[in-house]
Amino acid sequence: MSDANTPQGIAAQLSELSPGSAVSLQMSVDSYLEVMRGVLDIFARKKDMDTIYVTATISFEAIKRVLDALDIDTSRMYFVDCISHIMMGTTAAQKDEHASLVESPTMLENIMLKVEYLIRMSPSKNKLVVLDSINSLSIHNNNWILSEFLHILVSGLRAKDAYTIILSVEEHSTPEIVNLVNLVCDQVIRIGKPGD
């Protein structure tokens, strides 16, 4: 595994960016855990940030289990769960004060509203917003509305000096998806498979 693909390497690349930056983090399926550790553990802790994690891929409950298994501290993480409602499995998210539910990944405005709410609630000066993932959102939304959503979301977060990281899975991405993410991001970081 090259240095850039390790959690430390990912965090180091992100640390070079100034507050308000938006990053397109393109990863292979196999790199997911390294990315989680690099972004949520090392980078967020180093910058003393509260993290708002928008999950459209797996439920809050599942992502929490992954993070607990990785022994990543989630006390400063707040989740916007866009998937539990459509899976009819909202119980865990409803009971946890760190989780906010959006009824469907098609309600992109409500995702923006929940992010805005959590930013206002966060006492931390520094904030990180992670969007996991653009591929999952693209299952439920057309590229036109996704592009508009990313533009408004990222512009708003930039104005608040919050870091935005948009995750995409290379194996599942189309050139259109890559283009619409890159259009709003300042930097593209590619995390390849071991040995790439």
Binding site: T106, L113, I152
Partner: peptide
């Protein structure tokens, strides 16, 4: 605009035209 009623008050974001 789309709004949400929250404990920090009414929050507003533009309605996305694409949808």
């Amino acid at each position: 605009y789309v709004l949400d009623l929250t404990p920090v008050g009414v929050l507003l974001v533009p309605l996305l035209k694409g949808g």
